[in-house]
């Protein structure tokens, strides 16, 4: 009888310790997970089946001589963005294309690639907007065809 009561006492004690420890761990974990401000999770970069930019891309449209260095600088950033795009680093690619249009607001190719990134991110509305701008600037037939092709994929 006495042995029984002492073993049940031990059991209760053990249970209490386990309960206490697990509640402590739960509290500790909960504290850890709750950040002190509302953190936005970094955007999920969805990789959708989308043809990689073709190697035989049409040459970028010509610009008047006075705008050439600006276009060249902007184009260099487009090239960097394309490298990031090929390795599916969409955030960096987006950054470079955005810098490219900031330097040369008439660089239609940069807007085209902003649309490509937006489409890959599943942001169709944004992609359409960039294509609107690309369409206005890329009057060359080959580029226009590429813009239309991308637009068709948005349908």
């Amino acid at each position: 009888m006495r042995r029984n009561s002492s073993s049940s006492l031990r059991l209760t004690r053990l249970l209490l310790v386990v309960l206490l420890a697990s509640s402590l761990i739960a509290v500790a974990c909960a504290k850890k997970r709750r950040p002190s401000y509302k953190k936005l999770p970094p955007r999920q970069e969805r990789v959708e089946p989308f043809p990689a930019p073709s190697e035989e891309e049409p040459a970028p449209p010509q610009v008047p001589e006075f705008a050439a260095p600006q276009r060249q600088a902007s184009h260099r950033l487009v090239e960097k963005g394309k490298v990031s795009l090929q390795s599916n680093d969409l955030a960096t690619a987006h950054q470079h294309f955005q810098e490219a249009v900031s330097i040369d607001s008439n660089n239609g190719v940069a807007y085209y690639y902003l649309a490509v990134v937006a489409l890959k991110n599943g942001e169709k509305e944004e992609a359409r907007g960039f294509l609107d701008k690309a369409e206005m600037l890329l009057i060359d037939d080959e580029w226009n065809a590429k813009v239309q092709e991308l637009r068709n994929q948005l349908q």
Partner: peptide, 30 residues
Amino acid sequence: GGIRAEPIAVMNVVTKDGLVVERRSIKMKR
């Protein structure tokens, strides 16, 4: 040229550890 670009002031918010927690993109529409 008739395309409306939303005004934007903040581009990125980065934590002190370098994590980009907010990325705002330019938005436009004809």
